[in-house]
Every structure is written in C-alpha cells, then in structure tokens.
Design a protein around this nucleic acid. Structure first.
Lengths: 208, 208, 208, 208
DNA sequence: AATGAATGAGAGTTCATTCAT
DNA sequence: AATGAATGAACTCTCATTCAT
C-alpha cells in the first residue's frame, strides 16, 4: 500500500501543452481501467496509452489513485449534470410517472455510456476514500434535486420527503447499476424502466 | 494476474485432519480478507493465520481466488438458508407487510453479521467469474423462494410474479448492502426497514 | 525514502540451507556496497552476486538498510573482539607505549581489512539510525575496555580516566580511518603508528 | 549515477543578475542539502527554493555534484580564513596552550555554524572526487599555517614539524567533527576544548 | 537569460506460486 | 500430508537531466 498522499493533481496545468497532456492521461486511464480493472491497470500502461512518458504522468498525478479519483470526479459531474438537465425538462404539471421515467432513463443512459469503467469506478474496491466521499456527495446532490422536484408534485404524498428522495436515488442507482452489469431477470431495457417506475411511483403515491 | 485455473478445491478432504485444515484456511481467509481486502490479503498471511504452511494451503486450493470463492459460497449458502427459514416462519394468512418485514430484517442481519467480509466478497472486484455466477444463482434461488411465498398472498397483484420477485430481491439486496456500508440518509435501522417494506409493499399491492 | 520498518532480519534461518543463503547475501552485500557505495549498490545487484533471487533476499531482510546494518554489526563485533584480544595479550607490567602500539596497530589492521567497505559502513551517510547507534555502542565498549586496562597502568596519570579513554578511542578511530582512506601527510604505516602512540602516550602520562 | 562531467560552473556570471542567481542557488543548495542530505536533496527542490527554474539551475551548474562542490569550496575558504585570522591574533610569545585553545575553539565554531550542512559536505559520501581534493588541500593549507606558527614557539619540540602539524590538524578536524555531531562521552563544550588542548599540548611539548 | 514540460532508466519492493524435501 | 525456502515477473514511483520555446 502506498503511503497516504494527497490525491489531488500535482500541478495546475497552466500551459496549453500540459492541458492536453492531462487530458490524454485521463482518457488513457479511463480506457485502461475499464479494460483491466483498477488493480490490473498499471500506471506504465496508462502512460503508454496516453503517449506520454511515465515521468510525465507522475508530474501531474501523485499516484495511481489520484488518476482514478480524477476520472471518477468527472464522471460524477457529468452524471449530476445530465440528471439535473433531464429532470428540468418536464413541465410543472407533468405526471409523476413521466418524471420518474425520464429520471430512470437518464440514469440508465449514464450507466450505459461506459459500463466497464463505471463498474471499476463505483463497483470495485478498495478505493481511495476520497472517491467514496465523492460518490456520497453525488448521491446527496441528486437527492436534493429529486426532492425539490417531487415536492412540487401534487401526486406525491410522502411523510418525509427527504428520506423518500434518498431512497429513490439509492434504489435507482443500485438497480440501474445491476441492470447494466448483469441484467435483472430477463427484463428488456424498456420493461426494466417501466418496472422501476412502477416501484417508485407506487411508493411515492401510496396511501399513508 | 494468474492464469485461469479451475477454482474448485483440489482435494476432497475425506479425512478428519484435512477437514480441519480446510476449515482453518477458510476461517483464516475470511478474517484476512475482511481485514485487508482481497488484493491486500496475501495467501502467505492466510496460511500463517490458519497455522498452516503455505505449501499446505496450495495443497487444498489451487489459487487465491478459489479460497475467496469457497468463503463466498458458504456465506451464500447461509444466506439462502436463513432467508428460507425466516420466510417459512409466518402463517399462510399473514399480512404482506409482516412477511416483507421479516425478509428485509433477515437480509439486513445477514449483511450485518460480518460487513467487512461481505463488502469484500460482494462489493469488491475483480473477482473470479465463478463468484459472480454464485451470486446470480443465489439471487435466483431467493427470487424463487420469494415468488412462491408471494403467490400465496392474496394482497399481491402482480402481472408478472417472476419479475416482481426478482426486482424485490435485487432491491432488498442492494439497499441493505448500502445501508450496512454507508447508511442511507440518516435513517435508523428500524426506520430503514419500515421504509423498504413500504417501498416493496406499495409496489406489490399497487392497482394495475 | 522507504517507510520505516524494523531493520532486523525477517526470518531466523533455522535450516541449513537458509543459513548459507543469509551468509551469501551478507557477503554479496559487503562486496557490492564496497564497490559501489550504499546508494549505488542495488538490492537486485546484491541478489545477483549472491546467486539468489531478489525475492529470496527480501525473505530474509525487510529492506536494503537491514542488509547494511547486518554487515556493519558483524564488522563491529569483529572489531571489538580483535581489539579486546589484542589488548589482553600484553603482561600487566608492560610499558604503556607497547600497549598503545598494539591497540593502534590492531585498529589499523581492522580498518585495512576492507577499507572500501569500511568507508561505506562508517563514513557514508545517511544511514539507518540503527547503524549509528551500533557504532556509538562499539565505541563505548572499546572505551570501557581501554579504561580498564589503562587504570592498571602505573604510568598513566589521568584525572578522569573515563574521559581519557573515550578521547583515546575516538582519536584512534578517527586517525586510523583517515590514514587508511587518504593517508596523513606522507607518513608511512609504521611512522603513523609511532606518531599516534606518541600523541596518546604523552597525553596519558602528562604531568598535571 | 551520472556520467562524469566537469564540475566547474558552466558560465562565468559576469553580469549582476547572474551573480545573484548563482548565489541564490548556492544558498538554496546549502539549505536543501542540510535538511535532506545530498542524495535526498533534489535539484528540482533546490531550484524551487532558489526561486529559479530548473532550467536556469542547469544553466549555471552542469550537474548536482557541481553545486555541492561549490558550496563546499566556499565553506572551506571560510574555514581557512577564520583559522588563519584566529591564529594570527595571539602575540609571538603567547603560551602554546593559549594558541591551541584558540585554534580548537575556532575549528569548533566553524563546525558548529551549520552542523547539518557540514555533515553532508564532509561526512557523507560518495561525493565528487573534486570535493575530496578540496578537503585535502584545505587540510594542507591549515597544516602549513599551523606549522609556521608552531615553529615560532619555543615550547614546541618536534622532530618533524611538518608531520606534527598535519597530525594536529587531522586530530582537531576529526575530533571537533565528532564532538559536534554526536558528542564525545558526556564532555561539555569547554571541557572538550581543554581536553583536546591537553592532548595536543602534551604531544607537541613532549620530551623526545 | 530563463523557462518548465518532458524524459525514462532504474530504484526498492511484493506476493502468488512451485517443488525438493 | 505437510513443509517452507525459493522464485522472479511485475509493480509503483523518483529524479537528474534535456531542449524546444
């Protein structure tokens, strides 16, 4: 195990060339980790794929974990952005089912965009604890977004909107992850979405 | 990365002594993996904790992965047994909520019994594909059990009982796992169970 | 910089084969360090010279520093033994000059036995702090030995025998080291010994 | 190990700015080497502390060793200057003990001025051979100075003044170095000086 | 005169696995 | 049935140095 070091990038790449280098490394890292897993993906391999010397890689990232964290962070940012964008799309008086459908679909799309990488980033362990914190924070952000939207929905009758929102996010996160990686029963993609929408819809609109 | 090899134990430990040796190794493996993760747990360390030489360990297990699989298998077997036992407990005319409550509680207990080990076995990757298959099969078994019980429940109105059962199992699996490892919102244990029961209950009894 | 680890050997080599292996490693280490210095001598090189795989080397020594310390320890032990033996040789009523002569000669011989190695062990830095402690302790031991002998010498008139003994040891240590490594003036070996004997003799027998 | 290259500075810094740059590098080098040793002090770190880019550093020094040598040279020059100044202070008919006392004190002061740096410069190895030569030459210079002064001293009765002077210098060098770095016995500073003075005084004034 | 991004050989170390005993 | 000494490929990471700008 390497000594604990800050996992934030070492240098701020100020020059144009450095910018490109950093991006090449991250892109290469994503590919290498996706293909071979975190433990199996070596820094030398990443450097090679990035077309950069190993020394250069370590110029910008203090260690292997920092590369992973940087990749994960950008994935999470993208995830949040897409979900927020997707949720904002519908009108205010849109039926709950449509809203949920869009939410689940978007989450599914995000997971599908690079399943292997996703599995490594969020399914593997052990990981730098930074990564874990990022994920938790993402879920928190998503829960807030969802809660705000649900509270504007007349159909929804939750005693504790906060808790409900968190449960919804966790459930969607977990089920889409599983669906993408090993399927659920023999459910087709659309059927899966419908089923999850039914699960969440009946929960959120249940008689108390 | 080791070459692919059969992951089943090498010898059938027919004799008493061998039995004990194998068990010692599995127990040691569980402890070591729980404490240090899969990658961090070395076979030499396992052998040492088991009070056995490294040579003996390889006499019974062809490689590191096989130890993990064996440990996982026994955990999964226990899981299935406990759930089946727990589900069988209630009477036939028992309310759905009570049944679900018992199911969720049992799953939670199983996850709580050794969270660290559980995380390594079912949260970490990469793992021998055998392990993955075992987990899928366990979920299948659980789904069957649940389905059988639900079909006897008058409240339940599912179009596709099979799919519903799978979704229920997946959801409970995923949510209890998450709850044990990093909590969900700030939900207390009991509140968590109630919430999951509500989620599943409203889904299973929804008006179609 | 490697993380701090115990520098004592890892395994007690109980079997005959291991004994030989450890000795081969120490011998190879002595040669390699002597030839290339501590920093320049690599563990891989030592293993190669020892005719042993790098893994085997690390089976017995937790890191490079431990090899150095082990080599140094044995050198120091030899040093102490030779000096004690040499000092014990003379009769009780032996003239001081003869005693000193033997002491200086012996120290010189020890330093001459493998000057390059000696320089690395006791002239280089930075070194594991263990090594420093060993050297200090050796000097302490030598000082005690010398003091005991000097106190039996009627010619010696020291106010503080303890201090005098330490100064004598330090001086001989330092001057022989320097003489061996870059000579002092153009002094021939014998002349050097005589001069040091004169230095110490006049000091120990001075009128107070 | 770097290829052997000339260790003298690359450019003559004729301009003011260059002067300042060189001095900044030397000062930074002194600090960095003192703090982290020679091997542990990196050229990048030195450049950073000097507030200069690594490229600029290599504009003035062909390699790491050259920086060390330059630092050492200036220390040695200072050493010689201080000793010469100190020796010249006393009157011609001053007692030998006073002269020696001043000499030892001055050497001690010089060693004490920056012990860490001193240890790195003159205690560590391996070093560029240039450095070794510088040290030898310094000792030669010091020996000449001492010899000249001693030959004017009626108390001194050395057969070979040259040799005696060298031995004196070597002894003082070695003992003050040791005293500063790990003490000698439990001798206080003053007591140490007195003892060394006694050692040298009795040697220089001994009956032949 | 100065920069700093890039280099890459090579360092120390680990650990799953083998096989002679 | 059991041992444990030995293996060595492969890992992460460092740092003196270069050279295009």
């Amino acid at each position: 195990m390497a000594a604990q070091r800050p996992l934030s990038p070492r240098k701020r790449p100020t020059q144009r060339r450095s910018q490109a280098t950093v991006e090449a490394i991250l892109k290469a890292g994503a590919r290498v980790f996706a293909r071979r897993g975190y433990a199996g993906g070596t820094t030398n391999h990443i450097a090679e794929v990035a077309g950069v010397s190993i020394g250069t890689l370590y110029e910008y990232f203090p260690n292997k974990g920092a590369i992973l964290v940087a990749i994960a962070q950008s994935q999470l940012d993208r995830m949040i952005a897409e979900v927020q964008h997707s949720i904002a799309e519908g009108g205010v008086d849109e039926p709950l089912a449509d809203l949920l459908h869009r939410f689940v679909s978007t989450m599914l799309e995000v997971h599908e965009s690079d399943p292997k990488l996703h599995r490594v980033l969020f399914g593997e362990a052990p990981h730098p604890s930074e990564l874990h914190a990022c994920v938790l924070q993402m879920e928190e952000t998503l829960a807030h977004t969802i809660e705000a939207r649900l509270s504007a929905c007349p159909e929804v009758a939750a005693l504790d909107a906060d808790t409900a929102a968190h449960l919804v996010v966790q459930t969607v996160e977990a089920l889409t992850h599983r669906f993408v990686h090993h399927g659920i029963h023999d459910l087709a993609r659309d059927a899966f979405i419908d089923e999850v929408v039914a699960l969440l819809g009946s929960y959120l609109t249940r008689k108390l």
